[in-house]
Design a protein around this nucleic acid. Structure first.
Lengths: 191, 191
DNA sequence: GGTAGACGATAACATTTGTTATCAAATATT
DNA sequence: AATATTTGATAACAAATGTTATCGTCTACC
C-alpha cells in the first residue's frame, strides 16, 4: 500500500524496505475499538480501507471530533506523542483494513530521517498544517450555525455525509440526532 | 525585556545582541488595531505590558478567539507564516507596551538557529504544544456548557476575568453579553 | 424467513440562548 | 464639575436546541 508514497521520500531502496517492514496489516470489523480512553496510545494506524472516528465520552454522550478515511493516519495524537493516557476513543465505523506501526519503531525511523533536511522541514510543515486545520475547524464551529456547518460538510467533506451514520455526524456537529433530523427536513422544505 | 530568556538560548553574546537589536519597542493606547482583516501579517509582537485580543468579524459581530498578556508573543499566525491575508483582527485591550520584529528579520534568525539541534527541537515542541492547546480548547468548547466554560476561565485563566471587559469574554465563550450576565447571576444565586 | 438491533423521522414539551430595550454605575474626556 | 462613552444588569419576548417517546425501515444474524 505504500508504493504511492515511494517517490516522495529520498531514501535508498534498502531503507525504504526496512521502514515499510515495520508495518503490520490487520483486518477488523465495524465498531472495533482501537484505543480506549485512559490507555496510552502506542500504535499509529494508516487506513488502507474503511473509516475511523475519534470520540470523547462526555457524561455517557458521544462527542465525535474527527473522521478518517483511506490513506489517512490516525492516532490519539497527544497520547501517542507524549505518552499520556488518552482522553479519546479511537473506533472503526466500517469494517476496515489497517496498517499500523509501533511507536518505538516509528521513533527509530524519525530519529534517522530527521537528519535529512527535506524530511525535517516537511515534518515541521505538517505540524503547522495540523495546527491551522484545528484553528479553521474551531473558528467554523463558533462562527457557523449547526445548519451552516452541515451544509459545509456536504460541500467540503461529502464522504462524511455518504459513509458515516447520522448520529455520529450529529455528535460531530455538536447537536442531537433529533435536531440534525430537523435541520435536514428544513433544508428539503426550503428547496 | 528579553533578559529573562537569555539563559535559555545557547548563543554567543554577540549573536544575542544582534538578534535582540532587531526588535522595536512601541507604546500604544487601548483599542489600537495592530492588524486588520485582509492585511498580511508582517510583525510578530511580544507584550511587555498590556493585553491583546485576536478576533474575527462574523457579520458585524465580534468573535474573540484568543487573549494574550505580558511576555506572550502574538501574530495572526497563519497569515504571518504563510503570507496569506489575515482573517483575524489583532487589537490591544489595555494601553500596552509592545516589542515587535519584522518577519524578514525573524526568518533570518530562524534560518540561522535551526542548525542548532536543541533550538530546532524546542521549536518543533512548541508547534506541538500549540496544536495540543487548540485541541484542548476545542474539546472543552464542545463538551462544556457556557456556564462550565466560564467557571473554567475563573479557575484556569483568572487574568482574563480580571482584566478583560465582559463583552469580550462573552464573545470568547460564544454567548451574548446578556447571557453571560445571566450565567453570572445564577452562579451568585446558587452560592 | 424471522427477529433483534441499528438507524432515522417526527411530535410534544422543556430548557437554553438570543434579541431588543431600558436603566444604572463606572470611567474617560473636556 | 459636567458630559459622553463604556460597561454591565435585567426584563420580556422570540428563536434555537434538547429531551423523551413513538413509529417505521433497514440490515445483520440465527
Amino acid at each position: 500500500m505504500f508504493n504511492q508514497f515511494r517517490n516522495k521520500f529520498p531514501l535508498t531502496d534498502e531503507k525504504w524496505l526496512e521502514y515499510t517492514s515495520y508495518f503490520n496489516r490487520i483486518e477488523v470489523p465495524a465498531k472495533t475499538t482501537l484505543l480506549e480512553e485512559g490507555e496510552i496510545s502506542k500504535k499509529l494506524f494508516i487506513i488502507e480501507k474503511g473509516c475511523i472516528r475519534v470520540w470523547f465520552n462526555n457524561n455517557g454522550k458521544d462527542l465525535t471530533t474527527q473522521f478518517f478515511f483511506e490513506n489517512q493516519s490516525v492516532a490519539s495524537i497527544e497520547s501517542f506523542m507524549k505518552k499520556f493516557p488518552s482522553q479519546a476513543f479511537v473506533e472503526t465505523i466500517e469494517p476496515s483494513i489497517l496498517c499500523w506501526i509501533h511507536k518505538n519503531d516509528l521513533d527509530t525511523i524519525l530519529e534517522e530521517i530527521k537528519e535529512i533536511p527535506e524530511l525535517r522541514d516537511r515534518l515541521i510543515d505538517m505540524l503547522f498544517e495540523r495546527t491551522f486545520d484545528y484553528m479553521k475547524y474551531f473558528v467554523s464551529f463558533i462562527k457557523d450555525s449547526p445548519a451552516q456547518r452541515y451544509l459545509n460538510l456536504i460541500k467540503e467533506r461529502p464522504q462524511i455525509i455518504q459513509r458515516v451514520p447520522q448520529h455520529y455526524i450529529a455528535s460531530y456537529l455538536g447537536v442531537t440526532t433529533v435536531h440534525l433530523s430537523r435541520i435536514k427536513s428544513k433544508l428539503v422544505h426550503k428547496k
